[in-house]
Design a protein around this nucleic acid. Structure first.
Lengths: 204, 204
DNA sequence: CGGGATTGACTGACCAGTCAATCTGTTCCG
DNA sequence: CGGAACAGATTGACTGGTCAGTCAATCCCG
């Protein structure tokens, strides 16, 4: 039985240290000893709590992705226009980055975009996010607020791609970072995907 | 002096084999001996032509990215609407994937999206593509064909992000593959980013 | 005292990169 | 024309270092 109230949760300590190390050096280029050092914990303890180095990353991803999937599902239950739903989802992801940039960096760089390794492993989870977004677009097309020139699947891909690319812009320092920029980004992503870049003749 | 017309260019043979191996197993998980085997060449020959395993990937990326940058620049010299320029760029990238999916997979997965390793190394090249696209958007905003609600930098990111995500969809088998799908994708990407998802009141 | 928590030295596997040896085609001289 | 001399191409066994994962010993709480 686990202790009721341990002074410090070493398992959590290791996970948090791993986030920092993975973000700094990347999963492949860091050593397990780097994680142990960062957590100020003995090497062997890492293997007391985790079966392997891979399992640490898996845990981090699944923990966070589950939160994301729930957030999207929650947004979808609200009675608001599709544009506002997409705004809420983009906002949630941007705020996740604001709250813990390292964690989001790790999830995107090491999992979501790692087509040969963890991305393949977690494809079902990733796919689920796309499907939930596609469902929102689909409903908007049926109620007439979205045009049906683009398939929902495709729209979901483009929307999520734009969001991820913006985070990548921050990760790569290609975009300026700051509270103002984060708020702007939410609006701009939705404005681009929903409103489009082109001027429309006859609109306002 | 190099032989005028060698029966086979072993250097090329190694590069092409590396594309297949990197696409199949990923850069980090493959061994140099896998590349040599795939090329049906002795292990040591790889090091006769390349300084290191990294240099092989660098070569592949730089070769192809140079072609892309030239293509974008070429498109931009034409006297056509911005939407058609973006269509041409999306088309070029999609056709690159159609022509050699393995190579594009490697470039995207192992370089463009590898924020901790090769992505960092080649950031200047990657940035250049964004800047060229942003310049197209900027000009379209000045001539009035694009709205100026979204900054050109941001629009470039969203556009490129959507394109890359569609390729990722093919790489992950999330999207159906085929000549028809490739052509549709070109249109849909541009339709989404330029036209937007929303129905516009009063338009046609 | 019993058992989970914690330690860190150790091992076995793996693999990038080296290198000395060999091969193959070219050049040039007698 | 034969063949000597050379140079780059090609070979693959080997080395040195790295590191994930193991494990026996120790600690410490209840």
């Amino acid at each position: 039985m686990a202790r009721a109230q341990p002074a410090v949760d070493k398992r959590r300590l290791i996970l948090d240290a791993a986030v920092r190390v993975f973000a700094r050096q990347g999963f492949h280029t860091c050593r397990v000893s780097d994680i142990a050092d960062e957590a100020r914990v003995a090497y062997g303890l890492v293997y007391h709590y985790f079966k392997s180095k891979d399992e640490i990353l898996d845990t981090l991803f699944l923990e966070r992705w589950d939160v994301l999937l729930r957030a999207i599902a929650e947004v979808d239950t609200q009675e608001i226009p599709a544009r506002q739903k997409l705004y809420a989802i983009a906002g949630f992801i941007v705020d996740s980055y604001r709250h813990d940039p390292d964690l989001m960096k790790v999830i995107i760089v090491e999992v979501t975009r790692a087509a040969n390794t963890f991305g393949r492993t977690h494809l079902p989870q990733i796919r689920q996010a796309y499907e939930q977004i596609a469902a929102i677009v689909d409903r908007a097309q049926r109620d007439g607020s979205f045009r049906d020139t683009v398939t929902p699947d495709f729209a979901a891909l483009a929307f999520y791609g734009a969001v991820e690319q913006v985070l990548t812009g921050w990760i790569f320092s290609l975009l300026p970072v700051g509270d103002r920029e984060y708020e702007d980004a939410k609006t701009l992503i939705v404005e681009t995907i929903c409103g489009g870049l082109e001027r429309v003749e006859g609109a306002q």
